[in-house]
Deep mutational scan, measured.
Amino acid sequence: RTAFSSEQLARLKREFNENRYLTERRRQQLSSELGLNEAQIKIWFQNKRA
């Protein structure tokens, strides 16, 4: 289980509010910017949509 920092969570929530689905390219960008792997971001979005 991933423990996200408050900064990472704030960024993910802001991104989710703008778009509930990420393109592969956007997921790669977020992964690089947040220091998370793409799978972690993908799962976070899946869980948030559920």
Results as ranks from 00 to 15, higher is better:
Arg1Met: 14
Arg1Asn: 14
Arg1Gly: 14
Arg1Ser: 12
Arg1Leu: 14
Arg1Ile: 12
Arg1Glu: 15
Arg1Phe: 11
Arg1Thr: 14
Arg1Trp: 08
Thr2Ser: 11
Thr2Gly: 13
Thr2Trp: 10
Thr2Ala: 10
Thr2Arg: 10
Ala3Ser: 12
Ala3Ile: 11
Ala3Asp: 13
Ala3Lys: 13
Ala3Gln: 13
Ala3Trp: 13
Ala3Gly: 12
Phe4Gly: 02
Phe4Thr: 03
Phe4Ala: 04
Phe4Trp: 05
Phe4Arg: 02
Phe4Ile: 12
Phe4Asn: 02
Phe4Leu: 13
Phe4Met: 10
Ser5Gly: 05
Ser5Asn: 10
Ser5Asp: 07
Ser5Thr: 15
Ser5Val: 03
Ser6Gln: 13
Ser6Asp: 14
Ser6Cys: 15
Glu7Gly: 05
Glu7Ala: 07
Glu7Tyr: 07
Glu7Gln: 08
Glu7Trp: 09
Glu7Asn: 06
Glu7Arg: 04
Glu7Pro: 04
Glu7Leu: 07
Gln8His: 04
Gln8Ile: 11
Gln8Asn: 03
Gln8Ala: 06
Gln8Lys: 03
Gln8Glu: 04
Gln8Trp: 02
Leu9Phe: 04
Leu9Cys: 12
Leu9Asn: 05
Ala10Asn: 08
Ala10Arg: 07
Ala10Asp: 11
Ala10Leu: 09
Ala10Lys: 07
Ala10His: 07
Ala10Ser: 08
Ala10Tyr: 05
Arg11Ile: 12
Arg11Lys: 08
Arg11Glu: 06
Arg11Cys: 06
Arg11Phe: 05
Arg11Thr: 07
Arg11Pro: 00
Arg11Ala: 12
Leu12Tyr: 00
Leu12Ile: 02
Leu12Phe: 01
Leu12Pro: 01
Leu12Cys: 03
Leu12Val: 01
Lys13Gly: 09
Lys13Asp: 15
Lys13Tyr: 13
Arg14His: 12
Arg14Gly: 05
Arg14Ile: 10
Arg14Trp: 10
Arg14Asp: 11
Arg14Asn: 08
Arg14Thr: 11
Arg14Cys: 13
Arg14Lys: 13
Glu15Ile: 04
Glu15Leu: 04
Glu15Trp: 03
Glu15Tyr: 04
Phe16Pro: 00
Phe16Ala: 02
Phe16Asn: 00
Phe16Leu: 03
Phe16Ile: 03
Phe16Glu: 01
Phe16Gln: 02
Asn17Val: 08
Asn17Lys: 13
Asn17His: 10
Asn17Arg: 10
Asn17Ala: 14
Glu18Pro: 00
Glu18Gly: 04
Glu18Phe: 07
Glu18Asn: 09
Glu18Ser: 07
Glu18Tyr: 06
Glu18Lys: 13
Glu18Thr: 08
Glu18Met: 09
Asn19Gln: 05
Asn19Trp: 05
Asn19Pro: 02
Asn19Asp: 09
Asn19Arg: 06
Asn19Lys: 04
Asn19Cys: 14
Arg20Lys: 12
Arg20Gly: 09
Arg20Pro: 15
Arg20Asn: 09
Tyr21Ala: 04
Tyr21Glu: 08
Tyr21Asp: 08
Tyr21Trp: 11
Tyr21Thr: 08
Tyr21Leu: 07
Leu22Ala: 03
Leu22His: 01
Leu22Val: 05
Leu22Glu: 04
Thr23Lys: 04
Thr23Arg: 03
Thr23Cys: 05
Thr23Ala: 04
Thr23Tyr: 02
Thr23Glu: 05
Thr23Gln: 04
Thr23His: 05
Glu24Lys: 15
Glu24Ser: 14
Glu24His: 11
Glu24Cys: 10
Glu24Gln: 12
Glu24Ala: 14
Arg25Met: 12
Arg25Gln: 14
Arg25Trp: 08
Arg25Pro: 08
Arg26Pro: 01
Arg26Val: 07
Arg26Tyr: 05
Arg26Ser: 05
Arg26Ile: 06
Arg26His: 06
Arg27Gly: 10
Arg27Gln: 12
Arg27Pro: 02
Arg27Val: 15
Arg27Asp: 01
Gln28Met: 10
Gln28Asp: 05
Gln28Tyr: 08
Gln28Ile: 10
Gln28Val: 09
Gln28Thr: 08
Gln28Pro: 01
Gln29Asp: 08
Gln29Asn: 07
Gln29Ala: 11
Gln29Cys: 06
Gln29Ser: 08
Leu30Ser: 00
Leu30Arg: 00
Leu30Tyr: 01
Leu30Trp: 00
Leu30Cys: 02
Leu30Gly: 00
Ser31Glu: 05
Ser31Asp: 00
Ser31Pro: 01
Ser31Phe: 03
Ser31His: 02
Ser31Val: 07
Ser31Gln: 05
Ser32Leu: 14
Ser32Ala: 14
Ser32Arg: 14
Glu33Phe: 03
Glu33Thr: 04
Glu33Met: 05
Glu33Cys: 04
Glu33Ala: 05
Glu33Leu: 06
Glu33Gln: 05
Glu33Lys: 03
Glu33Arg: 03
Leu34Arg: 00
Leu34Tyr: 02
Leu34Glu: 01
Leu34Ile: 08
Leu34Asn: 00
Leu34Thr: 08
Leu34Asp: 00
Gly35Gln: 07
Gly35Glu: 05
Gly35Tyr: 04
Gly35Asp: 07
Gly35His: 06
Gly35Lys: 05
Gly35Cys: 06
Leu36Val: 10
Leu36Gln: 01
Leu36Tyr: 01
Leu36Glu: 01
Leu36Lys: 01
Leu36His: 01
Asn37Gly: 11
Asn37Gln: 11
Asn37Leu: 12
Asn37Thr: 15
Asn37Phe: 07
Asn37Arg: 07
Glu38Arg: 03
Glu38His: 04
Glu38Asn: 04
Glu38Gln: 06
Glu38Trp: 05
Glu38Gly: 06
Ala39Thr: 11
Ala39Gly: 09
Ala39Asn: 13
Ala39Cys: 15
Gln40Ile: 15
Gln40Asp: 15
Gln40Lys: 06
Gln40Cys: 14
Gln40Gly: 03
Gln40Tyr: 08
Gln40Leu: 14
Gln40Asn: 05
Ile41Pro: 00
Ile41Leu: 07
Ile41Tyr: 01
Ile41Asn: 00
Ile41His: 00
Ile41Arg: 00
Ile41Lys: 01
Ile41Glu: 01
Ile41Ala: 00
Ile41Gly: 00
Ile41Met: 02
Lys42Ser: 14
Lys42Gln: 15
Lys42Tyr: 12
Lys42Asn: 13
Lys42Met: 15
Ile43Asp: 14
Ile43Arg: 12
Ile43Val: 08
Ile43Glu: 15
Trp44Ser: 01
Trp44Cys: 03
Trp44Gln: 01
Trp44Arg: 01
Trp44Gly: 01
Trp44Ile: 03
Trp44Leu: 03
Trp44Asp: 01
Trp44Thr: 00
Phe45Lys: 00
Phe45Val: 01
Phe45Leu: 03
Phe45Ile: 02
Phe45Gln: 01
Phe45His: 01
Gln46Asn: 07
Gln46Met: 09
Gln46His: 10
Gln46Cys: 10
Gln46Arg: 11
Gln46Val: 07
Gln46Ile: 10
Gln46Tyr: 10
Gln46Lys: 11
Gln46Glu: 14
Asn47Asp: 09
Asn47Ile: 12
Asn47Phe: 10
Asn47Cys: 14
Asn47Glu: 13
Asn47Pro: 02
Asn47Arg: 11
Asn47Lys: 10
Lys48Phe: 09
Lys48Asn: 10
Lys48Met: 15
Lys48Thr: 13
Arg49Ser: 08
Arg49Glu: 08
Arg49Asp: 07
Arg49Asn: 13
Arg49Gln: 10
Arg49Thr: 10
Ala50Cys: 12
Ala50Tyr: 08
Ala50Asn: 12
Ala50Ile: 10
